[in-house]
Design a binder for these strands. Structure first.
Length: 491
RNA sequence: CGGGGUGUAGCGCAGCCCGGUUAGCGCACCUGGUUUGGGACCAGGGGGUCGCAGGUUCGAAUCCUGCUACCCCGACCA
């Protein structure tokens, strides 16, 4: 069988790039660093959005929309925030074009220079807190629990489809609270929402943790994250939730009158996940034959491939499978009947495997005679022939089982690829020969973190929330440490 | 932004070093026929300002200059 994509073992990077393109998820646009998300890829993103949006609403949030442009002065209000984003901003300086003097094309009209430049949002804390100032006077106005689905721009030097693009789609939650406790609680609640989504929908096991000082979000007091492990042993941050303290409230002068009549600054959080999750989904489960999608996010859960020689045969098969298709749809299973007469069955098998459809049902003349259907599962590539009347029930069970199987496969992989080390030599050896997560003691200083990063390219992915208290010595400095933290090379 | 590489049909490439008919090949595409339970076969056909702009030359895909985009390795990052 001709392979559509290179093997992971040969070139993991190339495998990923080719898979994204061949599975029709996305492609490079002619705009630097920007991608076109194609219909099949976008429909997976829509499934993610639907699930997340429901979870946000269930936790009391509502959606709103704020401007794409942020005045330069807004971004500058919070010192570490602007420092963090300054190097990757797209800036609007003019608002008009005119015909070029040589008659060829158009040019920027120098007369149209803006008084104040506008930044294309790299994130929306500043523009949103500027609004919150107008909305909040009293404790009665709190909390504000808002989410926004939007695009943002970060002018990255090197881009990769879904993992890092100059423009990407995401959601950003921005909340305002009367107390620090409430804001911290919100920060952790949303971290849990992300972890649940990753594990239950994406079938992606994640580790919840807190970022080190060096890795936290510019403008945050604390950054929490979920970290996942990809098949090549590199880590990928799948979502972040920030406790902003009163930083943005102070920067935008957002004060409220408490019950006791005292003025205080508002406490904030922000949290987000992006189309980067698509990259995580692809890299976590897929194989050398193509995508492997968890049933709960697959745009097509079941594809039916009829095998036929003539129009009459096809019609006979249609008559036979239509009740099954109706039955599955009634159970909210997304089914596609691939009755194209322009491609042979073998082609269709390969194509739907490349696209990661979890279950395939094949029905041909043989089955018609025997009253059977062949059921194929994408994750293990196992086939079985079932009695027609049994198929609907079995497929429902199978979809659940595939969801669980790929989760456990990823979890087993992560367990195997997580190593405890106690010396720096061990640390470097594991990193070079095995990769994956490394649990090691760290003295808690940014200096040590930086040095380890310089020497090994590994970073502290997070300080796990559920790490055991354990006395030890920093693998780098030998100074005392109270718990192990999670290191890895990362995307 | 530093180092290296590549832009030739929708995709993947050859041709370039050493300038010279009508710029080739595979896949894909279109037409007809035979096929159809793991990526079909035969026959015919269409499609290219050779990344862009200059320059050298009787003549440029090929040589020179500038620009631009993308890929790989660094630095930065979700």
């Amino acid at each position: 069988m001709a392979k559509a994509i290179p093997a992971r073992s040969e070139d993991y990077s190339l495998w990923y790039n080719e898979l994204v393109k061949k599975a029709d998820l996305a492609e490079h646009s002619d705009v630097r660093g920007c991608m076109v998300i194609k219909p099949y890829g976008y429909s997976i993103w829509e499934k993610m959005q639907q699930a997340l949006d429901k979870m946000f609403k269930e936790t009391g949030h509502t959606n709103a929309y704020f401007p794409l442009f942020v005045p330069k002065s807004f971004l500058a209000r919070e010192a570490s925030h602007v420092e963090g984003f300054a190097k990757e901003c797209a800036i609007v300086t003019h608002y008009r074009l005119k015909n070029a003097p040589d008659g060829k094309g158009v040019m920027v009209d120098p007369e149209s220079k803006l008084e104040e430049e506008l930044i294309v949002r790299p994130t929306s804390e500043t523009i949103i807190w500027n609004s919150y100032k107008k909305w909040i006077q009293s404790y009665r106005d709190l909390p504000i629990l808002i989410n926004q689905w939007a695009n943002v721009v970060r002018w990255e030097m090197r881009t990769r489809l879904f993992l890092r693009t100059a423009e990407f789609l995401w959601q950003e939650g921005h909340t305002a609270h009367a107390t620090a406790e409430e804001a911290v609680e919100e920060t952790l609640r949303m971290l849990d929402v992300y972890a649940n989504f990753a594990e239950n929908y994406m079938a992606l096991p994640v580790i919840k943790g807190r970022k080190s000082e060096g890795e936290k979000f510019p403008g945050a007091v604390d950054t929490y994250c979920i970290e996942a492990l990809m098949q090549d042993g590199k880590a990928l941050q799948a979502g972040t939730s920030h406790f902003l303290g009163q930083n943005f409230a102070k920067a935008f002068d957002v004060q409220f009158a408490s019950k006791e009549g005292k003025l205080d600054y508002v406490w904030g959080t922000s949290w987000g996940v992006s189309t980067r999750l698509m990259g995580a989904l692809i890299m976590a489960h897929s194989d050398d034959d193509g995508l492997v999608l968890p049933p709960r996010l697959a745009p097509i859960q079941v594809v039916v491939v009829p095998v036929f020689k003539s129009e009459e045969e096809l019609n006979a098969i249609r008559g036979s499978v239509q009740p099954l298709i109706n039955d599955l749809r009634k159970q909210h299973v997304t089914v596609k009947l691939d009755d194209r007469d322009t491609h042979k069955p073998g082609f269709k098998f390969a194509e739907w495997e490349l696209k990661g459809v979890p279950v395939r049902i094949t029905i041909g003349p043989r089955d018609l005679e025997n009253g059977t259907a062949e059921v194929f599962r994408r994750d293990t590539k196992e086939k079985q022939t079932l009695k027609m009347e049994q198929v609907a029930v079995d497929v429902l069970v199978l979809l659940d089982e595939i969801q669980k199987t790929i989760y456990h496969k990823a979890l087993d992989f992560r367990s195997t690829m997580t190593t405890q080390v106690n010396t720096f030599d061990e640390f470097k050896q594991v990193l070079e020969e095995k990769g994956g997560f490394i649990e090691a003691h760290w003295d808690g200083t940014t200096e040590t973190e930086e040095k380890i990063k310089e020497e090994t390219k590994a970073t502290i992915r997070c300080i796990p929330l559920h790490a055991r208290e354990e006395q030890g010595m920093c693998v780098y400095s030998g100074r005392p440490s109270g718990r192990r933290v999670l290191f890895a090379r990362a995307y």
